[in-house]
Amino acid sequence: MTAVALPTYPHRHLLGIEGLKPDEITVLLDRSEAYVEQNRQIDKKQNVLRGRTLINLFFENSTRTRTSFELAGKRLGADVINMSESGTSVKKGETLIDTAMTLNAMRPDVLVIRHSASGAAELLSQKVDCSVINAGDGSHEHPTQALLDALTIRRRRGRLAGLVVAICGDVLHSRVARSNIHLLTAMGARVRLVAPPTLLPASAAEMGVEIHHDMRKGLKDVDIVMMLRLQLERMQGSFVPSVREYFHFYGLDAEKLAFAKPDALVMHPGPMNRGVEIDTEVADDIHRSAIREQVEMGVAVRMACLELLTRHLPNIRTT
C-alpha cells in the first residue's frame, strides 16, 4: 500500500458538532463520500479497524442508529458488541461511571453511547481511554445524525453554504436539531426554526437562526425542509394540545410544502409519525423525500467517523 496523505480529524472523540471547525466537518464529510461508494459494492468489507473492538452502549432504545453503527464497525473489520439497557448491569443499579470503568477495563477501542441524559457522552469520555462517539445524549447533541444530514444535502445540492434550511417541529427536546443548527450555521447555511413557541427553547434566537411560528411563512422559499419527530407524550396538552391541532398547523403536507422552493428536499431523522408531523404523501414522494437516502448516508458517515477517530488511538498499526 502506498502512503497517501490522508485528511485528518484532530480529535479522539466525537461528542458534539458544537466547536468543530468547518474544515473538520468537511474532512468527515469528504471521507464519508468514499464509503458511500464502497457500501454500494458487493464487497463492502475493509480491514482498517481489524482487531479493534467497538462497543455500542445504548441506554435508550434505538434501531436504526445502533444497526448503522454496528454495520459501520463490521464493514471496517472491527469486532462489535451491542449492549442495551435491559441487558446491562445498569438495570441492577450500577452508575454510568462504574459501567464505563468496567467496560474500559476490557480495553475497547471505541465506545458508542446513547443516553437519555444530556452530557452522558462527555462524562463517559472523561473516564475511558478509548474513543467515544455520542450517538445521542438527552436533548444535547446527535453529531452523526447532523453529519449524515449534511452529507445528504451536499450530495443532492452540491453545497451547504447559502442554502436555506427549515428545521420544523419539536426543537425543544431535539438533539438532532441542536447538532444540525451547529453544523449548518458553521458551514454557512441559513437556518430557520419553525415550531409553536412551546416547542422552542426560550433563547433559540440566540443560536443565529430565524424563528417562525407560522409554518407557511417559515417554509417560504426554503431549499431544505427538515422535519423533527414529535414524541407522543409531548402531544397530550402540555406542549401542544393534540395531534389533530399539531398536524393541522405544523404537519408537513403538500399544501404547506408548496411554500418551499419547487425542488425543496424533505428530510426526517426517523422514525416518522405519519399523520402527526408528516403526511404520508410527502414522506413517500420519491422526487422530494430524501428520508431513505439519509439512512444510507448514515452508515457511510459512521464508517468515516470510526476510521478517523481511531487514528488517534495509541498503537496505530503501521502497514
Binding site: 397530550q236 396538552g237 402540555s238 401542544v240 394540545p241 393534540s242 389533530r244 391541532e245 393541522h248
Partner: peptide
Amino acid sequence: ATKGLRGAEMTEFGL
C-alpha cells in the same frame, strides 16, 4: 384554556 378546566393540559387554541 385547559381541557375540562382541569388546569393541566392546553386546549386546541388554534382550531
